[in-house]
């Protein structure tokens, strides 16, 4: 893999994406862009298709039509490892850790495709974000607490120095203080490395804190998009999402 994997930033361009499993269509005609260096949050309640949207981008959803471009590369229908090697980091909502491997092995596994010497420094850097993990290196990942697991998931994605980071409901099941930490880390990474970010979230506050724009997904369609800096955007989103 080339050395420039760690530099620059990548945009994401999705057009007319339909996705689903078997006979079920979960994502319908979704189009959006994440410009290079931009952060977009897709919010929506459970079952609206957020995870499926992200999976479809990574080539994991069963049936997908439409096009997905990462930077200048058309990645529609490509296996996930090819997308990852372009410089995309993906943290799934479930099945995002090798639960039978130790934390250290998970960290090693995350960078298998990268040049070996390079990753040591980055590992230190990422572990400073989550000091608690340094004490857990030899523990099996499946035995970590829920919060620690989520931190590890994020650490793994960041370890690859992605130019585009795609994360699926990192805040799910987290206590507020950890959500704050996650927000801090994501902001710091954006400032430091200027990465592009696509996050699926239920947590409106976290989305507004990290993302430049927030899109609302309802029954598989994007129904509205708002700038995070707009006045009253929080109330409007809460109203749109509230039961």
């Amino acid at each position: 893999m080339s050395a420039n994997i760690t530099t620059g930033t990548l945009g994401l361009h999705v057009r007319d994406l339909d996705a689903g499993y078997g006979a079920a269509t979960v994502i319908r005609e979704v189009s959006f862009d994440v410009a290079a260096g931009e952060a977009l949050a897709v919010v929506g309640r459970n079952g609206m298709g957020k995870s499926t949207l992200l999976k479809a981008i990574m080539g994991h959803a069963g049936r997908t039509t439409g096009t997905v471009r990462v930077g200048d590369t058309d990645v529609t229908g490509r296996p996930a490892h090819r997308i990852v090697r372009l410089g995309v980091g993906y943290a799934a909502q479930e099945g995002n850790l090798f639960t039978d491997l130790t934390v250290a092995e998970n960290l090693q596994a995350a960078t298998m495709h990268m040049p070996r010497g390079h990753t040591a420094k980055r590992r230190e850097e990422v572990l400073t974000y989550f000091p608690v993990l340094t004490n857990r290196l030899w523990q099996t990942a499946g035995t970590l607490s829920g919060g620690e697991q989520k931190m590890l998931v994020l650490a793994l994605a960041l370890l690859r120095e992605p130019r585009l980071l795609i994360i699926d409901e990192i805040s799910d099941g987290l206590q507020p203080s950890v959500v704050d930490t996650v927000g801090d880390v994501l902001r710091a990474e954006r400032e430091r490395r200027g990465i592009s970010l696509l996050m699926a979230e239920q947590n409106v506050d976290l989305s507004l804190r990290v993302a430049d724009r927030v899109a609302v997904l309802k029954l598989g369609r994007i129904v509205s998009t708002a700038d995070s800096a707009t006045d009253g955007v929080r109330d409007r989103l809460m109203k749109e999402l509230a039961p």
């Binding site: 994991h60 490892h81 990852v84 039978d100 596994a109 298998m112 495709h113």
Partner: peptide, 12 residues
Amino acid sequence: ADPDLAEDSGIN
């Protein structure tokens, strides 16, 4: 352990 996650970690 998990072919999908291995793909996500950049493994062919």
